[in-house]
Simulated scan of single mutants.
Amino acid sequence: MWERKGLGVIAKESISEIAQQVIHRSPSIIFGSVVLAGWLMALLSWLVVSSNETSSRIFGICMIATTIGFAGLHHSTVGNIEVLAGLIFINDISESTYTIFHSTALFGNAFGGVIFVAPLKYRSCAANL
């Protein structure tokens, strides 16, 4: 394989710590975490669309993003960046580990968004007809 060089901005040990922190849980815990994060993000899209003012949209985005970050929830986008960096720059993470994490995160986010928020949106639209 090719030699992996970086810009030297972040130490490889830091990348390793961040990536290991994301994937050190069992797939069932990761799935539950991404379901909750997917639910929050889908709820956020609903809140942003229903808001009239820009300030309330910004507040909603900050509130949901902060909740996901401080709660340590897994998300397919952020987790992908962290684990992919670990895959590229360190040898502790295999391609199969990355694939398992990313597929779990994608399915969990989709499940959380579709199963929990879509019925609420449907009911809201059906009530207005």
Rank of each mutant, 00 (worst) to 15 (best):
F70H: 07
S45P: 00
N109E: 05
I64E: 03
A126E: 08
S26F: 15
F89D: 02
Y122A: 13
L129W: 09
A118Y: 13
G32T: 02
Q20A: 05
L44C: 13
N80L: 14
A19I: 13
F101M: 11
C125Q: 08
E82K: 06
F31W: 14
F107T: 06
S14E: 07
T97E: 14
V49K: 02
H102G: 02
N52H: 09
L129D: 03
N109M: 03
F31Q: 03
R25A: 09
L44N: 05
I115D: 02
C62P: 04
Q21S: 11
S26C: 10
V22K: 15
N128S: 14
V48C: 09
M1V: 12
A118K: 13
T104E: 11
R123N: 09
G60N: 12
R25D: 08
S14A: 03
K5G: 07
W39L: 14
C125H: 10
A105F: 03
H102W: 06
E17T: 10
W39P: 00
L87Y: 09
S76Y: 13
G72T: 01
A118V: 14
H24Y: 10
S26N: 15
S103Y: 14
A11Y: 01
P119Q: 06
K121W: 09
T54Y: 14
M41S: 04
S50V: 02
A19N: 03
S50N: 08
L106H: 02
K5R: 07
M63N: 01
I30K: 06
A118G: 01
G38F: 15
V48L: 11
R25M: 06
